[in-house]
């Protein structure tokens, strides 16, 4: 048992170190990707001037903290596995991966985690710039909120990664399946609370959105971080439940995909 844990630790740490070194090479690109996650701040600019916020009982400070947190949450839940999976599939890199004793899933997961580590200084830098130019956006979350939000962000990342991974399996059937990513982004954009806090949603839309995993991917961690009132236990339970269901589906999808792959003789 300890031997097994030790092995997993060794594989994980060496995988992460290697991916981190690779990501350091890409630091210029990562900085640019980080900057391109500006949408929550643009939405903040719009909502801070809108009267709707007051009418649903939110203060301008709450809305500011919410969107600043959403900006951070989005930075650390970025997922691009569909694109890189499609690329590896087309370029024929997948076959050697399949021959190794490590499921390719972990290779992609570790590269995402490594990228997030590389992002940390850039996000710090951007937040500092924001605080400098817009002083009233400045806030420091409570330590408890910060830790809880960190866990929520990690779980949200896992759920989002699993969703994209399951759809990435479509690459086994269609070479250009990564185009579907465009469709996956739409509900994320509009239902997760990225463009508007959930309070502003009409009741009908809000209750529909709560049936999807999306509000837990962005709105929930952002609220935890900003210290807003939120059902913490319910949120974590939903993230874990979604994570578990998607994990089961992803294993099934992977097996079907590999079956298809070997049948095609690629």
């Amino acid at each position: 048992m300890t031997k097994k844990i030790f092995r997993i630790y060794r594989v994980a740490s060496s995988l992460l170190t290697a991916q981190y070194a690779l990501m350091i090479e890409y630091r210029a690109e990562i900085a640019l990707w980080a900057i391109s996650g500006l949408l929550p701040l643009i939405m903040l600019a719009l909502w801070s001037k809108s009267d709707v916020i007051g009418s649903v009982g939110l203060t301008s400070q709450e809305i500011t903290h919410y969107f600043v947190s959403a900006f951070i949450v989005r930075q650390f839940t970025a997922v691009w596995v569909m694109v890189s999976f499609e690329e590896d599939n087309i370029e024929g890199k997948l076959s050697p991966f399949l021959l190794q004793p490590l499921p390719p899933f972990w290779r992609y997961a570790s590269s995402h985690v490594a990228e997030q580590l590389t992002r940390i200084p850039f996000v710090f830098f951007m937040i500092s710039i924001l605080f400098l130019f817009v002083p009233n956006s400045f806030f420091i979350p409570k330590l408890k909120d910060f830790i809880l939000a960190g866990i929520a962000i990690f779980l949200a990342f896992c759920v989002r990664f699993l969703i994209h991974w399951i759809f990435a399996m479509l690459c086994f059937w269609n070479e250009r399946a990564a185009a579907i990513e465009r469709l996956l982004l739409i509900p994320y954009l509009f239902l997760s609370g990225l463009v508007a806090p959930l309070e502003v949603f009409s009741d009908g839309v809000r209750s529909i959105s709560m049936l999807t995993p999306y509000p837990y991917l962005l709105s929930f961690p952002s609220k935890v971080m900003s210290g807003a009132e939120v059902n913490i236990i319910g949120g974590f339970a939903a993230l874990l439940a979604w994570g578990f269901c998607l994990f089961v589906v992803s294993i099934f999808a992977w097996r079907q995909g590999v079956k298809r792959y070997s049948a095609m003789g690629a």
């Binding site: 719009l46 809108s50 009267d51 709707v52 009418s55 269609n174 250009r176 399946a177 185009a179 579907i180 465009r182 469709l183 739409i186 509900p187 954009l189 509009f190 463009v195 508007a196 502003v200 949603f201 009409s202 839309v205």
Partner: peptide, 27 residues
């Protein structure tokens, strides 16, 4: 596949944008 993705994406994005606009104009 791109044809379908593109048509759905346009419809989806438009619906989403209208939804956001309607929120700004609520109350």
């Amino acid at each position: 596949l791109n044809v379908y993705v593109e048509i759905f994406a346009v419809i989806g994005n438009l619906t989403g944008s209208l939804f956001v606009l309607s929120m700004f104009y609520s109350n």
